[in-house]
């Protein structure tokens, strides 16, 4: 197993509050890793540091052994690291097709002047990327809504569109920020299948999730944080019985503990 993404002692503060402190964990190639923790534990902040939205105040983030700490989001994307957002961020005025096509941005080799002159090579590439987009739409069962304005769709479908958009970038690792939030039971179950399907195409997955059923069922490895610090790490069985985890959840939030 080779390490794809390594977090080594990263930390960040907001206005004196230590949101994440000395956090280390590793995501190996081909794994599905779950990051869990009670509300406000700092999970999304960790994602924002990995994807370059925030710059960690301390520690290093490595991608295949190379230091990428503090790199800008656009540079992170070039590594093949893509994410979804907890609050879905689709392009509102665009169709589902256009949104997923946006994920192909880095695959486009055309220069701006080729585009403005509509040269043959550029037209060819457009056709190729449109085909790739349609292929992904088919795989995620979105062909039927390709021309529909993305934000007019039900929440669950929008989540799938955002997922399709990350896949269009042919990522090595995708980071899913609460992919099951707002989904009904059937959609949530389908999500599990989708996550396995993505992993089977060779994509590594790191996810934050409140829905314990999803996390426990899909994750190979789980990292638990509370108040910005790691409190446990291991497979689903080990986490379920870990006293520190049980205390963190029972002590703070009963709903989540029963869900677990």
């Amino acid at each position: 197993m080779t390490a794809l993404l390594e977090l080594d002692g990263i930390g960040i503060s907001f206005g004196g509050l230590r949101a994440v402190d000395d956090l280390s964990f590793t995501v190996n190639q081909g794994q599905i890793v779950g990051l869990i923790g009670p509300n406000g534990a700092g999970k999304t902040t960790v994602f924002n540091m990995i994807t370059g939205v925030y710059k960690p105040a301390s520690g290093t983030i490595r991608w295949q052994g190379n230091d990428i700490t503090g790199a800008k989001p656009a540079r992170i994307a070039t590594l093949g690291l893509r994410r979804t957002f907890q609050t879905i961020r689709l392009f509102a005025d665009m169709s589902v097709f256009e949104n997923v096509r946006a994920g192909c941005h880095l695959a486009a080799r055309q220069h701006w002047w080729q585009g403005l002159l509509a040269l043959p090579a550029q037209r060819r590439e457009e056709a190729e990327l449109a085909a790739r987009t349609h292929d992904i739409l088919r795989r995620l069962d979105l062909e039927g809504v390709a021309d529909t304005p993305a934000t007019s769709l039900p929440y669950g479908v929008q989540r799938r569109v955002e997922l399709a958009r990350t896949l269009a970038g042919q990522p090595r690792l995708i980071i899913l920020d609460e992919p099951a939030a707002g989904l009904n039971d059937a959609e949530s179950a389908a999500l599990n299948d989708t996550i396995f399907m993505i992993r089977d195409t060779g994509v590594t997955i790191l996810l934050v999730e409140h829905d314990m059923n999803v996390v426990m069922q899909v994750s190979d490895h789980i990292v638990v944080i509370n108040f910005g610090r790691k409190i446990a790490e291991g497979n689903a069985t080990a986490i379920r019985t870990n006293p520190a985890v049980i205390e963190a959840y029972l002590g703070r939030d009963d709903d989540e503990a029963t869900a677990a």
């Binding site: 994807t51 939205v53 800008k72 989001p73 656009a74 992170i76 994307a77 070039t78 893509r82 994410r83 957002f85 961020r89 689709l90 392009f91 509102a92 005025d93 665009m94 256009e98 096509r101 946006a102 994920g103 941005h105 880095l106 958009r165 970038g169």
Partner: peptide, 18 residues
């Protein structure tokens, strides 16, 4: 298209590599 991505949501666009 990249212009439109940026206009709509600069953060989302940048995570796509724009």
């Amino acid at each position: 298209r990249a212009l439109r991505y940026l206009k709509q949501d600069e953060l989302a666009a940048s995570t796509l590599g724009v």
